[in-house]
Each structure stands twice: as C-alpha cells, then as structure tokens.
Amino acid sequence: MRKLKMSCADTSPLISERMDHSLPLMKRLRVGIHLAMCEVCRYYENQLKVLRKLAQHLGREEGTTEARLSPQARDKIQKRLDNGI
C-alpha cells in the first residue's frame, strides 16, 4: 500500500490539479491528510482560489480600460470600417 503521508512537493501539484477536476479517492485522501497538518499548503490552496477570482475579474468584458488602442491603430481600423473592407 502506498504511504498516506506526502511531502509538500508531492502535495502541492495535486492541490493545483484539484482546482480543475476532482481527484481519485486515494489521492484525495492523501491531500486531505496533508492539508490537515500543513498550514503552508493550506495557504497555497487559498492563493490559487484568489488567483482564479482575480483572473476571472481581469478577463471580463467590462475590464478596466487602462489599456487603450493606440491612435494609429484606431485610425487604421476606423478607415477600414469606413471603406467597408
């Protein structure tokens, strides 16, 4: 039987992986055991959740428009639209 106790190096990739799909029972169990004992890996899990929310926010259609089309690009696109090509 594989050992239940895992290191942070073994666990952290699984913490990331389970952000994306549920793990098989055995892995899930081992991650759970590690997380119960390891504060630092719990921080990592929280950070990944924060990253996900931030990324979703950053990618919205109504994102902050700090980035602007350059005047040149704006003119170029406008001309093409006006000329219908």
């Binding site: 990618g59 259609e61 109504e62 994102g63 902050t64 428009t65 980035a67 602007r68 089309l69 690009a73």
Partner: peptide, 9 residues
Amino acid sequence: DSMYHYTLV
C-alpha cells in the same frame, strides 16, 4: 478600447 483590453489580457 474595451475590445482591445479584453484581447490584450
């Protein structure tokens, strides 16, 4: 601008 921002990200 909003399309540009959306794409640039």
